[in-house]
Amino acid sequence: MLALLLCSIALPAQAEKADRYKKMEVESDQPGKVDLQNQVVVFNGNVVVSKGTMVIRAGRIEVRETPDGYHLATATGAPGQLATFRQKRDGVDEHIEGEAERLEYDSKADTIRFSGKASVKRLRGTAVADEVTGAQITYDNTAELFTVAGGAAAATPTNPTGRVRAVLSPRQDSPAAAEAASAVPPGARR
């Protein structure tokens, strides 16, 4: 049995601060169930959940409201598809995008957990700045922290050992980023 590999990476990734306090909207292609007594909403079939700039797309979602008014949502992908997440970062032209077999969102803790074939990217405009992959990734918006775990559960045909992986770009507008942008790749010189 492979040991669980843990890696914590602090990336500058704070989401829109106002999103946390927005209404959560859920829609789907198939009939849903709203249980007011137990504060549970269940929807299936091309489900789209939005809360401010945050959007989750899934085959199925279950949302529970806690007694203190926060939301706990569990989303799973449709057969053969992963559930997806996207949210704008606060004050910059950047987004956090992720996908996994299962997403667990906690509005009180301001976290989202990606489980099973998990991948999370930070996009600058449309370009990928950073990417993290593993069996499970937790994005803690408040602490601006991604935690990634790997091991046997993260194994894929292209990564049979299930190792976690992070690809990190230099901070934008830093000397390292300027140097990287001006570098000419080998073979491109004349």
Rank of each mutant, 00 (worst) to 15 (best):
V49P: 00
Q172Y: 04
V164I: 14
K121T: 06
V47Q: 04
N38D: 15
R86Q: 14
S174V: 02
L5E: 12
P31K: 11
E131G: 05
Q37D: 14
T161A: 12
R102Y: 12
A73S: 13
L123E: 06
K23S: 12
G98M: 11
N141H: 07
S50K: 07
D110F: 06
Y105E: 05
R64L: 01
V164R: 00
L145R: 15
A188Q: 15
A178E: 08
A155I: 07
V184S: 09
V167C: 02
E144P: 09
S182N: 15
A75C: 07
R189I: 08
E131T: 10
R189F: 11
T142F: 01
T142S: 12
R60M: 13
D140K: 04
A178D: 06
A149Y: 13
R60I: 08
P79F: 10
K17S: 10
A152Y: 02
V148M: 09
A180D: 10
I137D: 00
L2C: 06
A109D: 10
V167S: 11
N159A: 11
S169M: 05
M24L: 15
V164E: 00
V120D: 01
S174K: 04
I137M: 02
L5V: 11
A176K: 05
G151W: 04
V63G: 01
H95F: 14
H71G: 04
L145G: 03
G32Q: 10
T158F: 02
G80A: 13
G59W: 00
K17M: 08
E65I: 05
G125K: 02
A154V: 08
A129H: 04
T53V: 03
S174E: 05
V63W: 01
E99H: 13
A152W: 00
D68F: 05
P160S: 08
A118V: 07
G187Q: 04
V48H: 01
R163G: 09
A183W: 05
A143Q: 15
T53F: 03
F114M: 09
M1S: 13
A166N: 03
P185F: 07
T161M: 07
G116H: 12
R64A: 02
V63I: 12
V55A: 03
V40P: 00
S50L: 00
E65N: 10
A178L: 08
G162T: 04
G98Q: 08
T66A: 11
L36C: 01
A78D: 14
V42Q: 09
T138Y: 01
S119P: 01
E179M: 05
P185A: 11
R163C: 01
R89D: 08
R60D: 05
A100E: 11
A109H: 04
A152S: 08
K117Q: 13
P12G: 15
R102W: 10
N141T: 05
R171L: 08
Y70C: 00
K51S: 09
A143K: 13
Q30I: 06
P185Q: 11
V184T: 15
N38H: 15
A135L: 03
V49L: 14
E97P: 06
F85I: 02
N46M: 02
L168S: 05
A188V: 11
T142R: 10
E104R: 13
S174G: 01
I61V: 15
G134I: 04
R165S: 13
V128N: 09
S28N: 12
A18Q: 15
V132P: 02
Y70S: 09
A178S: 05
D93V: 14
V40N: 01
L123T: 05
L2T: 14
T126N: 10
A135R: 01
L72I: 14
K51E: 11
G32D: 10
F146A: 03
R60A: 12
